[in-house]
Design a protein around this nucleic acid. Structure first.
Lengths: 221, 221
DNA sequence: AAATAAGCGGGGAGCCTCTCCCCGTTTAAC
DNA sequence: GTTAAACGGGGAGAGGCTCCCCGCTTATTT
């Protein structure tokens, strides 16, 4: 009777235990690493082992694999969004900002998102939509600024940039090649050179937003 | 006794039956399609079903999965090599030849090779080495010709080209997106624009051959 | 056209891996 | 110090894949 409010005698949600929060965080980190290396269908037990927790803890926090995948995707998108904002803020030259963002996104292993499109999670989850919009807005800002300054060719969209960067930085399965990172940055650089204005060729098709991608990428065979 | 040669009464290897050869061919084709769409660890039974043969026939022809993967890789490499040779032969402009080859290789789904690097087959198999050398030679020809003509930047190598093209054309898992091909060709085009001389930036690292890749891509965690 | 044997197909046993739960123990919170 | 939430590890259960067996089909040979 000391502190219970009137209508909720047992409904206290006292705040989760500190170790529970820590464990959840460790699980997400471990899952991100494992997903990058082995793909999102890596066994639960392995993720738990890497996180240093029992598998029961993993199941308690993420009853469905989709929950875990989504959490990882969200955390990755949030990081990348922040990179975009930082780049826009701190780089004076608009194209340099784009370069910096691109290389930084590669270092965050944004390419590891690709294997998570395999339909094992709900693309329309509210949290995901929100985060996607934040990300798109941030990158859109970079793109428009550079295009407006005449430094970036005008026939590309956010979707083009994100997909190409994701593909170029996508991890090779089963290998932890020491030099691969170096390659990736070379290829990004070449791609960026192709993005610079003035355009050296005419592109087929039309510029794409992230929304286009979300809509189009779900057609399963 | 009518036609048996002197020393080989039963050792006749009469030539495989026509339907057996046809089946083998159909299996490889089916496997290539399945690998492109679902990756190289797709169930044997599915491959057999797609090929329209019984699973026993598949096992008879390719007792180990590595055998099947290798056969698919070989056939794909052979096709791509031919594309490179044709492009070099039929295109007058050196950079146009490179463009044509690149886009054609994308249509052949060369990106599907990536998932087959997952260590499930013997990278040093003699047939593979031979085919790799043929491929490298053909593409090297394209690259050197364009570089010599001053149309292609000189700080890249065959390895750079092949890896980047493979990554950009790599199929997304679980999706058969209708428009994806269109995207791929946009991105290839952008990348090619970045390859054109004069170079717009300085690349980190050094140009790579296919041999470099083979050596470096086997370090497993 | 008949004989022959290589090749074929489909069904199913066996195995292995992953999921998911149970329950005794630990540990943060009060 | 007490309480209950959270933990961990072991193992049963299920599902899917591999691979073999054996009666039948069909290309080849004479």
């Amino acid at each position: 009777m000391t502190s219970t409010p009137d209508t909720a005698p047992v409904r206290r949600v006292p705040r989760p235990r500190a170790d529970a929060l820590r464990n959840r965080e460790r699980i997400v980190t471990a899952a991100r690493e494992m997903f990058v290396e082995f793909g999102p269908q890596v066994p639960y037990d392995e993720v738990a082992r890497r996180a240093g927790v029992g598998n029961a803890t993993l199941y308690r926090n993420f009853p469905e694999r989709a929950d875990l995948v989504r959490e990882v995707v969200l955390s990755l998108m949030a990081r990348v969004t922040e990179l975009a904002e930082r780049a826009a803020e701190e780089e004076a030259d608009t194209f340099a900002a784009l370069r910096r963002f691109t290389h930084a996104a590669a270092d965050e292993r944004i390419g590891a998102l690709c294997p998570m499109l395999d339909g094992a999670f709900d693309k329309d989850h509210p949290d995901l939509t929100v985060e996607r919009e934040r990300l798109e807005e941030a990158v859109q800002g970079l793109v428009e600024r550079a295009q407006h300054a005449g430094r970036l060719r005008s026939d590309i969209g956010v979707g083009d940039l994100m997909v190409a960067v994701s593909q170029l930085t996508r991890p090779l399965p089963g290998t932890a090649c020491v030099n691969f990172d170096q390659f990736v940055h070379r290829h990004l650089q070449l791609f960026l050179d192709g993005l610079e204005a003035p355009a050296r060729s005419e592109l087929p098709g039309t510029a794409a937003t992230l929304e286009d991608l979300r809509r189009d990428s779900c057609r399963r065979s």
